[in-house]
Simulated scan of single mutants.
Amino acid sequence: MIGRLVGVLAEKHPPYLLVDVNGVGYEVQAPMTSIYQLPAIGEKVTLYTHFSVSENAQQLFAFKDTVDRQLFRHLIKVSGVGPKMALAILSGIETPAFVSAIRSGASEILVKVPGVGKKTAERLVVEMQDRLKDWPHAGGDSVVPPVQAAGPVARQSDMVAEAEAALIALGYKPVEAAKAISRVCQQEQPERSEELIRLALKSMLPG
């Protein structure tokens, strides 16, 4: 079991990352809330991982800390929530906000998370309240994760393509991803693909 990776961030194509650990490249998938906080390509990074094995795939998921990893492990135990949906949930809402919504039974907050419908939100509240009863980390109700200061400006076409690929990997249909990205580009001037993804996710929230 691989529980932690310490190495150099070699590639970043959200939600996929490549981490070079002593010459061995580990491909992992990470939620956007973790990716927003990663250092630049070529810098040292520490990620906490979860190894998932199914009939069709072996996947390694990575998180910025053990708190997010533990929540991911709770999520995939919920009926109807697999690793892909759990990754999408953690990409759309910060861990403290999610825990707060579960504890208060606020399914209406969870419905705002991309990919979570009313029935799924209600099931999450029912099945996770006991598991998170003694959870030590709780906070506000922000659904939009923070973004780091922007780095060098990427080429627009590359940034758009990377953002669309990330949304599709999170479970959105290509048409939905393209429309969301286009809508953001008409209203904002994001300088990094991570920021464009964050704004696109926000634009798909109701109200």
Rank of each mutant, 00 (worst) to 15 (best):
A154P: 09
V78D: 05
K77D: 15
L170S: 03
L17N: 14
T46E: 15
F98M: 05
M128Q: 02
K64C: 05
S193K: 03
P83Q: 14
R198M: 06
R183N: 06
L205G: 11
V67R: 12
G23Q: 13
L18Q: 12
E194T: 15
A150L: 11
A150F: 13
A200C: 08
L38G: 11
E127N: 08
L17I: 09
K173H: 12
L196H: 10
R69P: 07
G7Q: 14
Q189G: 10
L196T: 09
V126I: 14
A88E: 02
G80P: 11
V143D: 07
H137N: 06
R192E: 14
Q58D: 04
N22G: 13
D134M: 00
S54C: 09
E194S: 12
A97S: 06
S54N: 03
I168W: 03
R123P: 05
Y172T: 03
P83L: 08
K77P: 14
A177D: 05
A86C: 00
E55I: 08
Q29C: 11
Q29F: 03
G92H: 00
D141W: 04
A161S: 15
V99E: 02
L5R: 04
S52T: 15
D158S: 15
T33G: 14
I41P: 01
A57C: 05
I2F: 13
T46I: 15
A163K: 11
S142W: 08
Y36W: 07
Y16L: 15
V184W: 13
E176M: 01
I76A: 03
L71M: 02
A165V: 06
T33V: 01
K179P: 10
D68M: 06
R69S: 02
L47D: 04
P83T: 04
G92K: 01
L71F: 02
I109W: 08
Y16W: 15
P15F: 09
R155Q: 13
G207C: 11
A149V: 12
S203E: 13
L110C: 06
K133S: 10
A163V: 00
L38Y: 09
I41E: 08
G7S: 09
P146V: 14
L199Y: 00
V21Q: 04
D141G: 12
E195V: 05
G25C: 09
G117R: 04
M85F: 11
T66K: 12
L170T: 10
V45E: 13
P190R: 07
D130C: 00
G151R: 01
D130A: 09
A180N: 05
G117P: 02
K202Y: 08
D130V: 01
V19I: 10
L38A: 06
A88F: 03
G151V: 10
F72S: 01
